[in-house]
């Protein structure tokens, strides 16, 4: 398995990286963990003539807590780090759980959240997790930057809003309100090293420990060309009192949002049926998590 030839760049600052990116335009790709890009290059699916590495760029691989109101995750933070970070696990649970299910440990130690989002595979683990947390993506280019909601980011398999001379530098996630809980469930055939047949991320917010649902977010992966939100199911849940029955009804509504395909991993019919089951399960889990919400120790 040989890699095609390319020039490698290791800029020391973000500015340098962005300048290189704008100079090379479509001929360059950003490399962070490389667990997806290098595979596609070995398979000759991609042949960039330049790779721009993020490894020397300061602070692009750190998680920064923003005083109580949120967290900023550098694009080069690895899945391994996300899955072991206590703050992420406690407050941004779907991201932590999804990161823990990505690939296997050796992959998680290299794969980054930025790569997982930008590659825009329909079955990606972190995309639905970021979607239920309403993450906002900071895209930079040489001259300017913009913030794009992750919910608008995906356009198709491998396609996003990102321009060739733009780089995803960080992901900002607002801290969910008190009495929020999250879940992430992935269905594959093995217990690990899997690409999802279906995955579901959920964030549920209660008014109080026993109170009705004040907010619900459900995102599904591998069921359409991009990960999708199940808006109808979300709306159905808001204002209602949580129960297993309610969650199973929401699951049935969730199926309506999806247009899964039949491929060698699973048929459309089975995927649709599993959306229902897994959505309802994820809602139950998120509810359990929400009920046990605790203020963070100071």
């Amino acid at each position: 398995m040989l890699l095609p030839k390319f020039d490698y760049h290791e800029p020391a600052t973000l500015e340098d990286a962005l300048r290189l990116l704008s100079e090379m335009g479509g001929n360059a790709r950003i490399v962070a963990g490389g667990t997806d890009l290098l595979v596609r290059m070995k398979l000759k699916v991609e042949k960039p003539s330049h790779l721009i590495s993020l490894r020397k760029i300061p602070r692009i691989n750190v998680i920064i807590q923003r005083e109580n109101h949120g967290v900023s995750i550098g694009a080069a933070v690895t899945a391994g780090e996300l899955s072991t970070n206590e703050l992420i696990m406690e407050r941004f649970t779907p991201i932590g759980l999804a990161a823990a299910r990505l690939g296997a440990p050796g992959i998680r130690n290299r794969a980054t959240i930025g790569g997982n989002l930008v590659n825009a595979r329909p079955a990606a683990d972190l995309s639905p997790a970021c979607m239920v947390l309403n993450a906002s993506l900071k895209l930079k280019r040489s001259k300017n930057e913009r913030e794009v909601p992750v919910n608008d980011f995906f356009r198709g398999p491998g396609e996003t809003l990102i321009e060739p001379n733009e780089m995803l530098v960080s992901i900002f996630v607002e801290t969910p309100p008190p009495w929020s809980g999250g879940a992430y469930i992935k269905l594959g055939s093995r217990k690990t090293l899997e690409i999802s047949m279906v995955n579901v991320a959920v964030l549920l917010t209660l008014q109080s420990q026993n109170g009705p649902i004040v907010d619900a977010k459900i995102a599904l992966g591998a069921v359409a060309p991009t990960p999708v939100r199940a808006f109808a199911a979300e709306e159905f849940l808001i204002g209602r009192q949580p129960s297993a029955k309610l969650f199973s009804e929401a699951g049935a509504i969730g199926v309506g949002m999806c247009e899964p395909i039949t491929d060698h991993r699973g048929t459309m019919e089975y995927r649709c049926l599993m959306i229902e089951t897994l959505t309802s399960r994820a809602l139950n889990q998120a509810y359990q998590d929400a009920m046990t919400w605790k203020p963070l120790p100071v």
Partner: peptide
């Protein structure tokens, strides 16, 4: 396998187990 699927190429890079088939030598500088 060369694709990060099997783990036979695992080495420890700065304290973490990684698939060395998916790391560029230049990235190990």
């Amino acid at each position: 396998c060369g694709l990060g699927d099997c783990g036979a190429c695992t080495v420890i890079l700065d304290g973490k187990a990684v698939n060395s088939c998916l790391v560029l030598a230049v990235q190990a500088d």
